[in-house]
Amino acid sequence: MGTSSLPDAGATAVAPAMALTRPKPRRRSKRLKAWFPYLLVAPAVIYLFLITLYPGVYAIIQSFHAVKFGPWQPVGFANYVKLFGDYQFWGALWNTFVIGSIALTLQCVIALTLAFYAYRDPWVQGWRIIFLVPMLFMPSAVAFIFKLAFLDARVFSDLLMRVGLIDSNLSIQSSIWMSRSLLIIADVWQWTPFLFIIFVAALQGQDEEVEEAARLDGASWAAIFWNISLPLMKPVIAVALILRGIDITTMFTNVFIITKGGPAFGTETISYFIYRTGFKFFNFGYASAASVVMLIITIIIAQFVVKRAFVSVRT
């Protein structure tokens, strides 16, 4: 399936690995030896081409066509022209950015605070297990927990009324910012542990003697954390935030289940925009154009941010 796209796929990025799929003499010659590492890595690379390069090329071609149910009609750049004038597309980019950056900032601050208090605590293993719990629920289940608590059963409103903070039920669904906050809270609840686990491990892995020396010199615990531990953790924080950031920018499940992008498209993320144009309105050419724009953004970020972060943490 899809093998027809492979030759041009190999030509671009990893040509040597592709050349190796042809059968080779069995004898353990010098040439085989030189190619052996390529042979080992080739199956994985070919497999990944199938889900990244093939769809990428497919989406690029499709984005220059009008595709509904019948045959593809070439339309040139029409999809892109329409896309760049589409306020819903820009809105989706903006929503993704706003929701994602707030959620990521909150998670990072909370996880660092918790890690700071937990990493030298005698019960650190216990805290880790408790804090892990939200992360181990299926995201679709978590979405339903928050949909029920905040929207359908209105438990959140009820609790606020009981402590006297509000007088009547919040109408979360009719407010863009309350709906966005709901998505942010759900994401913070489920994924702060991801950062917490990584930060605690990084802190525990640091040299205790440096801390001890600073403490004997009279430095406070907070000062040690701020001036010694935190700077040492920078590469780890970068990697953790990137991995988390990738998942946040592709946020789909919560939007699909909790808000459906509403009200007034105020919580529609870019993933949901593509899903809606493609699989609800069957406007595949248009959805592919949006995919290609997102793909380009992804490649730029991968090249300039991710590569550097992963290299720095390894050395």
Binding site: M1, I274, A287, A302, K307
Partner: peptide
């Protein structure tokens, strides 16, 4: 090309499911 291959493998993790969803669906 080893490091490029390693990074290519890593970078597939960054692919948003929504980007590849339509081609994969047809595939």
């Amino acid at each position: 090309g080893r490091d490029d291959i390693a990074f290519y493998i890593l970078s597939t993790r960054m692919m948003a499911p929504a980007i590849v969803a339509i081609p994969i669906f047809f595939l």
